[in-house]
Design a protein around this nucleic acid. Structure first.
Length: 423
RNA sequence: GGAGAGGUAUCGAAGUGGUCAUAACGGGGCUGACUCGAAAUCAGUUUGAGAUAACAUCUCACGAGGGUUCGAAUCCCUCCCUCUCCGCCA
């Protein structure tokens, strides 16, 4: 959520910079400023009435003691109470509309984010390794999975539906090995491991920005108002919702494994085969809470912490800085990490690392302070996949395949796998 | 799921319709005094949000949201959460 004070004082700038996302928010912003002006007028008037009401109310016990007739006083107070009630009602309306506008405005892109309309205008920052070359006809991971008997989407379709997978045997073990390898690497780099709930309430989904705008992307539990988490970002960031953190505890760094659930509304037909786009997938997430002045440095570190696990697996990847038009709703700056996927003959997103500045913190009321005297201020939140597990498994199968369809297990995983080769 | 108890600041806890809710009382933290230093003792200080040019002033917040009333922590309704016992369960 953006600060209405900031919008009020920088209306033109906010419009310009939000419009770089490719949607025109000018009307909404004008309406927000208008509502804010009205809001403050009503508050001013209302508080005057309340002050008067309080003064008279406080003197009532005394007057009663003196045995005064209070009929006139009560008459006047009744009038005041009526005005207050009406003002409260008006204020409520104004604030509801204002809030729903503020919740629908995305974060302001950072100055260093290139302006562009879509993913074609993202900027490649760096590459690691080079696209894998084969001396034989390489197979896509879904064919390898079938040949090896380790991936079974057909049975999953019977049991659940499209966009689900059974992993079997060494395939299941590979998924689990990757999760453990990721968590062990990140905890070694100073992240505290947490294991979160996979269902969260509405307030949490709103705190990180999934609601109210993107409800159709989420799975909602029918008999509760719970949502299946689309990413561990949601439960982990919301751990501190409505809290005031100690400055000396920052930065707080968490890594979390979770299953992730996405409705994938609107992506029918895309990535139909294999592990790339599933309703349920595993991910290890990195989440940070830090002071505002460090957040962009922390984003660089978080991104390289995510890259580290791909380097450990010797998978070729590149880092891309998203342009304004391709960036997520709540983010101010995002790096995507893309792994080389031979079957796609291109790099495919495997992690998205974002700095949200105070956007989520304001929505979720996550603040910090140093001294008792300090005013509580919003923290900055960051997160990034460290990294998507299913896509990593797909990348391992494809990049590490041999002519006979066997898979050479990356060295870093051998202890977890208990074998050097799948096949 | 059933029965009961409860949710007030940093913690414990009092307040059951008004005139001491920043909030009694007790503990903790911080600052100062005493001390070579510490303990003990004494004094002071310790919530957040909003309106405002304002660290002046005013308003709001007693789990959340409604209602009754001139006035609600207190009375009524709905919901959430915690604890104890029972049931069920991994």
């Amino acid at each position: 959520m953006l600060d209405i004070k900031y919008i009020r004082e920088n209306t033109v700038t906010v419009k310009e910079r939000l419009n770089t996302r490719g949607t025109d928010f000018a009307n909404l912003i004008d309406r927000a400023v208008e509502l804010d002006t009205k809001r403050r007028e009503v508050i001013f008037d209302n508080e005057e009435q309340k002050a008067k009401q309080n003064t008279v109310n406080r003197s009532i016990p005394l007057m009663k003691k003196e045995g005064r007739d209070l009929t006139d006083v009560f008459e006047e107070l009744k009038t005041i109470a009526g005005k207050i009630k009406e003002d409260d009602r008006v204020l409520d309306e104004i604030e509801n509309e204002l809030e729903s506008i503020l919740l629908s405005l995305p974060n302001i892109p950072d100055q260093t984010v290139p302006v562009g309309k879509d993913e074609s205008e993202n900027t490649e920052i760096r590459r690691h390794g080079s696209p894998t070359e084969f001396t034989f006809a390489a197979k896509p991971h879904w064919d390898l999975g079938k040949a090896l008997g380790i991936l079974d989407p057909e049975t999953a379709a019977k049991v659940s539906g499209a966009r689900f997978h059974f992993y079997k045997g060494l395939g299941a073990r590979l998924e689990r090995s990757v999760i453990n390898y990721f968590l062990d690497t990140h905890t070694g780099n100073g992240y505290t491991e947490v294991f979160p709930p996979f269902m969260v309430n509405r307030d949490s989904m709103r705190g990180t920005g999934q609601l109210p705008k993107f409800e159709e992307d989420a799975f909602r539990i029918a008999n509760n108002d719970y949502f299946l988490i689309p990413t561990a970002e949601v439960p982990v960031t919301n751990m501190f919702r409505n809290d005031i953190l100690k400055k000396s505890d920052l930065p707080i760094k968490y890594c979390a494994y979770s299953a992730c659930f996405r409705a994938e509304a609107g992506s029918a037909g895309r990535d139909q085969r294999g592990l790339i786009r599933q309703h349920q997938f595993n991910k290890v997430e990195l989440v940070k809470f830090c002071e505002p002045e460090n957040s962009y440095d922390e984003l660089e570190k978080l991104t390289s912490d995510a890259c580290a696990v791909l380097e450990g697996l010797a998978l070729p990847y590149r880092v891309v800085l998203l342009c304004t038009g391709d960036m997520g709703f709540s983010s101010a700056k995002t790096y995507d990490i893309e792994v080389w996927m031979p079957s796609y003959n291109r790099y495919v997103e495997i992690s998205s690392c974002s700095c949200f500045t105070d956007y989520q913190a304001r929505r979720a009321a996550i603040r910090y302070k140093g001294d008792v005297k300090d005013k509580a201020a919003f923290v900055h939140t960051l997160n990034g996949s460290g990294v998507a597990v299913g896509r990593t498994v797909a990348a391992i199968l494809e990049n590490c395949q041999n002519a006979d369809s066997s898979i050479t297990v990356p060295e870093a995983l051998r202890a977890y796998m208990g074998t050097d080769v799948i096949g």
